[in-house]
Design a protein around this nucleic acid. Structure first.
Length: 335
DNA sequence: GGATCCTTCTTCTTCTTC
């Protein structure tokens, strides 16, 4: 029984096409005998086959539900890390509802726009080594579902590419993301210092830059690039990609590369939480004299197709800020 | 000078039947 389940499981998950082959043959054979002569079912013991159909279909269906997959996975790989379900966390309220803004500060509108963007480098040496980063907190507080689907995806990829192939693939997508970010950094810096000059991009990022060209037209007054932000009371830090005006609105902008299209905000997973975390840190970091209440997630594509831009207004940002506070709470409780 | 850090990404039950 276990072996049978395994076969179906492996087929359903790792290689759905191969899994459906035996089933297809099974059904196809009677039909292929003589599709134009008598009824394809006339020579078939339908009673007998219908029970088989039911048996096969029911086991196929059940083998592909997340619950069964998870049970199978736990059987083989051990239980996944336990954490609260997202349905619960959505209803949860942060224990300390720390404000997103520092209301004692001057509104950003009164602050003069700087001529060149700020870039505060990360300085881990100065008593910051114990301060957790946004990425670390998000990674260590993933929901069981997220962990499950990520692990499943990873296993699928390894089964296709092999261990080494998967490592190579991961290195590549990280490298592309990094190159895209440094190309953007060059673009922003040169746009501020020498607006007439258009920097040359390495071939690897040309598609991405083309993808975001229509977004860049609406980006201006860049205030910060790749700059460290640290929340003074909540004690976490991160590096914001960019703080600039998008269509006149001051935003924390997060640039992303993606192989799959991400036309909806929900396709970006934890990205909105990440952006809210950065904005909240910036709003409570004395190195920045202004407040940012909006966010923007830009997803760029390598083939140059138009990037998707997801705007986060102040209402959404406050919502994701609460989600961030919960993640931060979970992280602290884990320790 | 080596080690570590922050990032850079990756996920979302599924089929028919002309």
């Amino acid at each position: 029984m276990f072996i049978l389940n395994r076969v179906l499981f492996v087929g359903g998950i790792i290689a759905p096409q191969t899994a459906s082959l035996p089933v297809m043959h099974f059904f196809a054979c009677p039909c292929l005998i003589s599709p134009k002569r008598n009824s394809p079912y006339s020579s078939v013991d339908s009673e007998r086959y219908s029970s088989l159909v039911k048996a096969v279909m029911s086991s196929r269906v059940s083998s592909q539900t997340p619950e069964t997959l998870q049970a199978e996975d736990e059987h083989i790989y051990g239980p996944v890390v336990k954490a609260q379900m997202p349905t619960h966390t959505e209803r949860r309220v942060p224990k300390t509802t720390h404000p997103f803004f520092d209301y004692e500060r001057t509104p950003e509108i009164e602050e003069p726009e700087p001529e060149t963007p700020v870039r505060i480098p990360l300085n881990r040496g100065q008593g910051r080594s114990s301060v957790p980063s946004v990425t670390r907190v998000l990674q260590q507080t993933l929901s069981p579902e997220q962990i499950f689907y990520l692990e499943r995806w990873k296993r699928r990829m390894i089964s296709e590419l092999g261990e080494e192939g998967f490592k190579e693939y991961s290195r590549n997508i990280f490298r592309q993301g990094k190159h895209f970010h440094s190309a953007l950094e060059d673009y922003m810096t040169s746009a501020a210092t020498a607006p007439s000059e258009t920097p040359e991009y390495p071939p690897e990022v040309q598609g991405y830059m083309e993808s975001i060209s229509h977004i860049l037209e609406d980006v201006g007054a860049v205030r910060a690039i790749e700059s460290t932000v640290q929340h003074e009371t909540l004690n976490y830090l991160g590096i914001v990609d960019c703080v600039a005006r998008y269509r006149g609105v001051l935003c924390v902008i997060d640039w992303k590369t993606s192989e799959k299209p991400k036309p909806f905000l929900s396709n970006t997973y934890d990205n909105p939480v990440q952006v809210a975390a950065y904005a909240g840190a910036l709003n409570n970091d004395k190195n920045y004299k202004y407040q940012v209440e909006n966010g923007l997630i830009v997803v760029a594509y390598k083939d140059g197709s138009p990037a998707h831009a997801h705007q986060l207004n102040s209402e959404l940002m406050s919502e994701y800020w609460r989600a961030w506070l919960l993640r931060l709470e979970d992280f602290t409780e884990q320790k």
